[in-house]
């Protein structure tokens, strides 16, 4: 077991296949993320009695945005230009090393669950700094709120991941997923279910969905995430949008594979990858539909009630770890 993980990258068999699989994952998340957002929008519209924009609207908007003019506020530093790039790159690297389509992504032994958590943090920090760069009132307010919520949701995420890692005796994500495949009884264990509940809360907070944040608000004072990105236009905005969508896709895919790993490709074959891709799409779509249904049926929480929700998630995660230790 140990040997597999510490094999240096260059000597691992099928390096090209693994790189290919990782690229496939990045593309899947890059395309799938906006589609998932479109799906959630569609569900919401249907529930409200509207037809709503087509599911691919997000991708169409992206195509339009990259062709538009970029605008940077005067007096901004390089941070404003770099932040969207870092956001997308960090999400892409996280997508490349996470077992989404296959359990053998590239540098699977060089990254793990904690690395993915901190890669997500990197994206959040980049966005928050970008929000402060223009020196506007709302940008700073958005950064402040986003960091506050992140400061409480990140611990919940980390401890929820820990619950899984303790069960599998490793924090290596492919390791956790592979171990879950061979221990189906784990999936119904109390610590898994508690960790799942905690992770769902975190996913909602990290991706800025109701009841934590309302992605379609137009009122600056109620904004969290939108306020941070008020300043981006054209290609920059396209990057921010796609980065956010990738984070959503990544987190949903991760939740799907951690709690229902079947269908993921365990070998490097092309057919297995194809099956993995289709199954991943189906699993994440199912979760997205559930999240969207929850969204339409709840009201957004007051900003200062959100930490209570997230602290609840943190406690759930901690209970999950404890349960795992007690029932071992």
């Amino acid at each position: 077991m140990i040997g597999v993980l510490t094999v240096p990258l260059a000597t691992g068999p099928g390096l090209l296949t693994r790189i290919g699989a990782s690229v496939l994952q990045v593309v899947a998340v890059g395309v799938g993320g906006p589609l998932l957002l479109g799906l959630m929008g569609k569900i919401r519209a249907r529930a409200e009695g509207r037809i709503g924009p087509p599911i691919i609207q997000g991708l169409l908007d992206l195509r339009k945005l990259v062709r538009k003019e970029a605008i940077r506020a005067e007096h901004t530093s390089a941070v404003a230009a770099l932040a969207p790039l870092v956001l997308v790159a960090s999400a892409a690297v996280a997508a490349a090393v996470t077992p989404l389509v296959t359990t053998r992504p590239v540098i699977g032994g060089g990254a793990d669950a904690f690395a993915v958590v901190y890669l997500l943090l990197m994206g959040s920090v980049a966005l928050a700094l970008g929000g402060l760069d223009a020196g506007t009132a709302f940008g700073g307010m958005g950064s402040s709120r986003a960091m506050t919520i992140g400061a409480i949701s990140e611990p919940a995420l980390l401890v929820a991941v820990l619950a899984l890692a303790v069960q599998a005796h490793t924090s290596n994500l492919p390791g956790i997923v592979t171990a879950s495949l061979s221990h189906p009884e784990w999936l119904a264990s109390p610590e898994r279910l508690l960790a799942l509940a905690a992770l769902v809360v975190v996913v909602i907070a990290e991706t800025g969905r109701i009841p934590v944040d309302n992605p379609s608000t137009h009122l600056e004072l109620t904004m969290i995430h939108e306020a941070m990105i008020l300043e981006y236009a054209g290609p920059d905005l396209a990057l921010v949008t796609v980065g956010e969508a990738m984070r959503l896709g990544l987190l949903l895919g991760l939740v799907a594979n951690l709690f229902f790993p079947w269908g993921i490709a365990v070998s490097g074959g092309g057919f297995a990858l194809l099956v993995g891709l289709v199954v991943l799409g189906a699993k994440t779509a199912a979760i997205a539909v559930l999240v969207a249904l929850v969204e339409v049926s709840t009201a957004k929480l007051r900003l200062f009630r959100v930490p209570e929700l997230l602290a609840g998630g943190f406690v759930l995660a901690a209970v999950a770890v404890t349960t795992g230790l007690v029932t071992r």
Binding site: R50, L60, I71, E220, E231
Partner: peptide
């Protein structure tokens, strides 16, 4: 339901066409 044709109102002119 103008939204079904791809129209949307946004919060910032930077995001707008």
């Amino acid at each position: 339901d103008a939204g079904r044709f791809g129209a949307r109102l946004v919060a910032s002119p930077r995001h707008a066409d």
